[in-house]
Amino acid sequence: MTATVSIGEFSRLTYLSVKTLRHYHDVGLLAPVDIDAHSGYRRYSTDQVTRAHLIRRLRGLDMPIPEIRAVLEAPDTGTRDAALRAHLERMEAQLQRTRDAVASLRALLTPAAPLTVEYRTVAAFPALAIRDVVGRDVIGDWCGSSFALLYETLAAADGVPAGPGGATYSMDFFAEESGEVLAFVPVAPGARFATPAGVALVEMPARRFAITAHRGSFENFDRTYGALGSHVAEHDTVSTEPVREIYLISPDETDDPAEYLTELCWPIDRP
């Protein structure tokens, strides 16, 4: 048996304020079952309590009103659950970003480890590579898909990498929020490959670098960039050639970001 109740009583049943209930009516989330033609008083059915509770929980999870409407109007359970899962996945990703930001901020409160710099001249070498203009906000996804394609291309030719993969980043990538990035995997000299679209066999140029190791996730990579770049500016002749990163232990090899190991190679013009 159901009953109809005033908006005030419905507010008590649902923990939703009268103001909120009126707003949900206005945006089409929760309409009263009856509105008095003369007084304008709204009345709700006790059948609507469960729907109101669901809306309250979804808003508590910061789900936008259009997405809540899609959940409520889903034609079947599968469609509804898919919408809920998609929102939860976005929330989990946001939560991880928040955790990373908190950890990064805590790291700024602790003294940086002493900088160890090695100078190395790297000879030219052949590599399978993918070159593109990439935005900094999508660089993680781009690198993930690019390296997957590079290693697939190598495996299809029964080849093995001649060294760890890496990437070069142009000055525009930092100065303009997007710029040319080249992801590469070294291969044996003289190797031949049937390369799919977007993949090329290139010659990585010889370069002189100041090099340091970055341990851990990329959340604090800016500190390593700042430290090494400052060292080069203070002791060497800065080159505008692309910075080179070498992924000695990459996200493909471990699920623990604390185990990542990356060489940051800063190009210099000093012999």
Rank of each mutant, 00 (worst) to 15 (best):
A194Y: 01
A194G: 12
A194S: 14
T195C: 14
T195K: 04
T195I: 07
T195L: 02
P196M: 09
P196K: 14
A197Q: 15
A197Y: 15
V199P: 05
A200Y: 10
L201S: 02
L201E: 09
L201K: 01
M204S: 01
A206Q: 08
A206C: 08
A206L: 06
R207T: 09
R207W: 09
R208H: 10
R208N: 12
R208V: 15
F209C: 01
A210V: 08
I211L: 08
I211M: 13
I211K: 12
I211C: 02
H214D: 06
H214P: 04
R215P: 04
R215K: 13
R215Y: 11
G216S: 01
S217D: 12
S217T: 05
E219G: 04
F221T: 04
D222N: 10
D222F: 14
D222H: 15
D222L: 13
T224Q: 01
T224N: 01
Y225K: 10
G226Q: 05
A227L: 13
A227G: 05
A227P: 02
L228W: 01
H231Q: 06
H231I: 11
V232W: 00
V232Q: 01
A233C: 05
A233P: 02
A233V: 10
A233L: 11
E234N: 12
E234S: 12
E234V: 02
E234F: 15
D236S: 10
D236P: 05
D236E: 15
T237R: 14
T240Q: 14
E241N: 11
E241H: 12
E241A: 15
P242A: 03
P242Q: 00
V243N: 09
R244F: 14
E245H: 03
E245M: 00
L248D: 02
I249D: 05
I249Q: 08
S250N: 04
